[in-house]
Design a protein around this nucleic acid. Structure first.
Lengths: 197, 197
DNA sequence: TACCTTTGTAAGTGAATACTTACTTACATA
DNA sequence: TATGTAAGTAAGTATTCACTTACAAAGGTA
């Protein structure tokens, strides 16, 4: 993975963009609003990003880098029970969402990005990353005899990721009022109960 | 489906809007484009809808009406096995998506609607409708002893709906190239296998 | 001092946006 | 035949958009 570095100012801008998206939706992310949030002129933003698209792209790249690090650290211990690994990943992921709800607005915007190749690729990249991580844990669990082989690895991965996304979506639709971490834990535990032999 | 809610012209407009969204994304749905697609002037559209928002709102309402009808018809036979009912619902739903892929672009745009109360309410209404339908089938299945009670009705519903949405999302991200109906069937069958005692 | 780079700004640009106005036409019906 | 109405148009409106240009101030370095 590319290890693109961001300047302090770029990070400031991306964080302001994230906040604005979370507060008012992605269509309220305009150069004008963003510049005002940062007490800068619009032109100043173009000193740090060559286009608005680059800001969104940077934002996703930044999150993917962070997510990668976070998950890689957690999966260091290969001896752990696969269910415990899955619980760790999703607890960490959901906690990140609670701490920075704005990122969810961006990640869940694949509908908007559908026709912007670069942005869509970034979102796809992130989904593929998760898919790979979850898939290999599930696969290991099946080979160790921890999980039933009634369903294939891919189907199970789809079920886990889809269910987790649904929990996040419900949380978003509730105006972030439901308890994301608890709801996520309980659904994941349910799936794992069914999976474990 | 017949309904008195929309004129023929309104339906024409909504269908053109749906096509345009599917072909070029929701941000390409402009009054100008839409008018051009219909070989009408922009002003003419305002004879039939009082705003662009009303067009989107109508579109969702139209789909919800159709979905309601379709599902209600299918659930007429109360004697059917719950798993068969679920399979019927989702097969019909996924087939509708394949026939009219555009509606998916709209339904999956809750990220865009997040800050438009009316539109968000419509999407929420549709999700709630599905939730109720699936939930009552699952509940009946549990009471009949067909499904295990290891997981609560709500958790199971979240898992089913989330998994189905994930299958649809993957289909969208593949550029509608994967086989939506088959993939959906196989994931649903997997879930039901795990659920059935 | 002279010069360069970085980071900023004021004041634009053209293109797009949703929507309006004033007017016209086709046609059903009294 | 006269009239009301539904459905259309050409040509706007005001506003917003992402982005650009020309210029300036600050600070390091020669």
């Amino acid at each position: 993975m590319e290890n693109k570095e961001f300047t302090d100012r770029q990070i400031e801008i991306m964080e302001a963009a994230t906040l604005r998206i979370d507060k008012c939706g992605i269509q309220e992310l305009t150069i004008k609003n963003l510049a005002a949030d940062l007490n800068l002129s619009e032109a100043a933003l173009y000193r740090h990003f060559k286009s608005k698209n680059e800001i969104l792209l940077g934002l996703l790249t930044y999150f993917i880098l962070e997510m990668n690090d976070r998950i890689a650290k957690m999966l260091g211990d290969k001896e752990q029970h696969p269910s415990e690994q899955l619980r760790l990943i999703f607890t960490s992921q959901l906690n990140t969402f609670v701490k920075k709800p704005a990122i969810v607005s961006v990640i869940f915007s694949e509908g908007i990005f559908q026709f912007n190749k670069e942005l869509l690729d970034k979102v796809s990249e992130m989904m593929a990353l998760m898919q790979t991580n979850i898939g290999s844990i599930v696969s290991a669990g099946q080979n160790n005899g921890v999980y039933a082989k009634l369903l294939g690895k891919d189907a199970i991965t789809t079920i886990i990721m889809g269910s987790m996304r649904m929990v996040v979506l419900k949380w978003k639709l509730s105006g972030n009022k439901s308890n994301l971490v608890n709801d996520g834990k309980s659904v994941l535990t349910g799936i794992l109960k069914m999976l474990e032999k």
